[in-house]
Design a binder for these strands. Sequence first.
RNA 1: GGGCGCGUAGCUCAGCUGGCAGAGCAAGGGACUCUUAAUCCCUAGGUCCGGGGUUCGAACCCCCGCGCGCUCACCA
Length: 491
Amino acid sequence: MSEREREARRARLAALREAGVDPYPARVAARETVAGVSEHFADHDEQALEADPVTVSLAGRLMALRPMGKLVFGTLLENGARIQISARKSEIPAELFAAVKTLDVGDFLHVEGPLWRTRKGELTVDLRGFQLLAKSLAPLPEKWHGLKDVEVRFRKRHLDILVNEDARRIMLQRSAVVRAMREVLDGRGFLEVETPVLQPIYGGAAARPFTTEHNAYDQRLFLRISDELYLKRLVVAGLDRVYEIGRVFRNEGISRKHNPEFTMMECYQAYADYRDMMELTQSLVQTICDRVFGTRQLPYRGQVIDFDGEWPRLSMRDAVAERIGVDVLDCPDLPSLQQALRDAGRELGEAPTWGRLVDDLFSEHVEPQLIQPTFVTDYPLELSPLAKRSPDDPRLVERFEAFVGGLEIANAFSELNDPVDQRGRLEAAHRDRDAGDDEAHPMDEDYLEALEIGLPPTGGLGIGVDRLVMVLVDAPNLREVISFPYMRPDD
RNA sequence: GGGCGCGUAGCUCAGCUGGCAGAGCAAGGGACUCUUAAUCCCUAGGUCCGGGGUUCGAACCCCCGCGCGCUCACCA
């Protein structure tokens, strides 16, 4: 049992206290960084270090110990950078050497001493003094195989990110992606805002919400499923360009592509439309590629995704026609479309409406094929109760979704700003709701009133940050890019 | 929710046709002044996921449950 090891470490901790050592001191002596020292002395060979000795002062976690009698080697890890340390019995007092031998892998140390290079050429700090910064009482994962068990990796993410380079890399890259996203939006004059997570009426997407309640007011509240309606209220308020990067919550199934809470970037731009949002989407992703990865060609699951250039645009009608051989606009209602599909020898799902059937066809036959970045445009009206009707075809709306690697990463439209049309569309959704569609959009009188005050023509865009990162860093699973993904409670 | 697979020492895993529960690493003791997966000797370490059944005998076969993974469905 690891209890044995924990007991051994506790015993050493007790011995330290006995000897008057504070195993958890409050302050760390002045120090340099491991990365800085490694970089600065990268070109200094053995002779140079001998001729002109340099003493360094470093802190970090002891990740390995290789005792060899009167010589001990160890590895210090600080902020992702490693450096070797050594302790030589001939160079330091006996008590100090003995103290080194009581260290455990996992302990935090401050060390100081001169730099030297081993025969193999490794830059090494020859310890002349050290201070324990924090005693580690529980063992780290095993050094050969590391931490591979997927369940343990996600349940004990502190260990995963500590010992698995890839997990750490993804954390850093995700942060860089979000930073680049903010820079682009800030550079275009967008104002970063925050809107309510707890909402009396949820909306802005088709999804089931989590519910909670406010004790003092005895009120039922929902965790937001999107930021949309509040952000558009802010555009009504005269904040012409706003964005929010925040967590949304959807009470639905969990999969490789779905976590119950995920990070969404939503932005709204007055006097713009969905075409402007297409340009913004492309520019955002390309700038992220440039700044974070230094290239617009990135590997994903054995293929190379090319984010450069103008992304192809494909209407949903053409996309479906290409794969299924049925022109959905030639079949204006559910029965005629079902008949056309039967004639084409296609399996029929149980779609309740024309729009849902079109969407089902698209999701099943087209979406998985969209590996290279692609804009899919012109969605059925009934799937998009918040999007502006297409001036060319009243059954369609000005909307697109961006797909990469078979994943939907962005959704955007020209926002519906006609309060009368909006009311009618929400009422229609409300009827679906009464008919049993529990994901249908609920009625929101307060939002409708805001629209009556007046929303300018506005383009809106939502990007699923986790999914975008998943594609960019070539992660097989959404959980890889979430610091603490949802896991069932274990016992 | 359905199908398939997995669950053995702290970690990574082996365990044959049902016959004494194993290795490496980690841990404890010892040797060792150029290691970096250090090496060598010794020691300790088990609810074989849980429960039930079949059997003289179950880690192994059967049933139920739990957890995880993949996948399908759901989730635009």
